[in-house]
């Protein structure tokens, strides 16, 4: 029985499946993490919803329909028959009669745009500083002291200071929304690149002593090419993990700024701003707090779960199992 089993196995010409690439492996591991797939799926859903949403739900979020103000969401009719609901506004309207569904879409668009842009900015800064500090020994000390200095900055107080100080000049030159967008993205990006830089530097320090870098160097590859072609692809996995963390914190930071009243202008909805505006009336209209609050929480939760799954999938020590 076992004899034939062995000979059966010996008769095989090769492995059953063709060898899989690294990213196929990563994807297979990622797909096994239920929470990560659900989180990633939710992020894709929200991103699509805020991108395509305005084409389907064409109501303008800024339109004041004062006759239809303070409408409850349509599902309130299930338990309160006398609640004022309307199919024209499925998520209800706010105290000025602005459609909540349209506001949620516009707010999500702003929150996600700020999150993605700030995350990319901090990623670019962090990766550049990390790779350069790890590769050039002479710059290492200076750049790492700079990183320590930035880590010693009180981030939230400084964010508040920067936003209140530079609001006026940037608004004057880029318009109220554009100026605020640039300001918030720049401020979050410039104050959150340090963890990425530290992780990337550590990895580059170990990588640059490896043989393939020596081989590249002996072939006459310039330092710039070595960094771009040989080092960057190898530090991609920690960068991707810190990218997900960065996206989550950027979304929360933007909402926190809006909540404290130093974010976008008052007629420009973002999730944090909608939440802050709804807090004074939350006893009568709890859904206006719940809708943006749940949207922020679920998005951040999804991103965090995705980061968790990504970390597991990209770590070859865990992937073996």
């Amino acid at each position: 029985m076992t004899e034939t089993g062995f000979t059966e196995a010996l008769r095989d010409d090769g492995p059953d499946e063709p060898p899989r690439g690294r990213w196929r492996d990563v994807w297979a591991q990622f797909a096994r993490h239920g929470g990560a797939v659900a989180g990633g799926g939710f992020l894709v859903f929200v991103t699509l919803a805020v991108l395509v949403g305005p084409l389907i739900w064409t109501t303008d979020p800024q339109t004041l329909d004062i006759r239809a103000k303070n409408l409850r969401p349509i599902w309130t009719g299930l338990w309160a028959a006398d609640a004022s609901v309307s199919w024209a506004h499925p998520f209800g309207t706010d105290n000025l009669g602005r459609d909540m569904l349209a506001q949620m879409i516009a707010g999500g668009r702003a929150s996600l745009a700020v999150g993605w842009a700030a995350m990319l900015l901090s990623l670019v800064i962090g990766t550049a500083i990390g790779v350069v500090a790890g590769f050039f020994r002479r710059l290492d000390g200076v750049l790492m002291r700079l990183t320590d200095l930035f880590l010693a900055l009180p981030i939230l107080p400084l964010l508040l200071v920067a936003v209140t100080l530079f609001r006026q000049p940037l608004r004057a030159s880029f318009g109220p929304e554009g100026g605020m967008f640039i300001l918030i993205v720049a401020v979050i990006g410039v104050t959150s690149w340090m963890p990425t830089a530290r992780i990337v530097r550590g990895d580059v320090l170990a990588l640059k002593e490896r043989e393939f870098v020596l081989a590249a160097r002996s072939l006459g590859t310039t330092p710039g090419r070595i960094m771009l072609r040989h080092l960057l692809p190898n530090v991609l996995s920690p960068i991707m993990v810190s990218a997900t963390l960065g996206l989550a914190t950027a979304i929360i930071t933007e909402s926190a700024l809006s909540f404290l009243g130093v974010g976008f202008p008052s007629d420009f909805p973002t999730w944090g701003k909608m939440l802050a505006d709804a807090v004074p009336r939350m006893v009568e209209y709890p859904e206006r707090v719940l809708l943006p609050g749940i949207a922020i929480s679920l998005t951040v939760l999804g991103v965090n779960y995705m980061g968790d799954g990504l970390r597991d999938a990209l770590d070859p020590r865990i992937r073996q199992r």
């Binding site: 929470g35 006893v283 609050g293 922020i296 779960y305």
Partner: peptide, 25 residues
């Protein structure tokens, strides 16, 4: 793990008003 993830993700400016609505109001 799930509860810590949720606690990690829900911002304090949402949990605060939520707790006020539930426990105060």
């Amino acid at each position: 793990t799930f509860v810590t993830m949720v606690g990690f993700s829900i911002p304090p400016f949402f949990t605060g008003p939520l707790l006020i609505v539930i426990f105060s109001v």
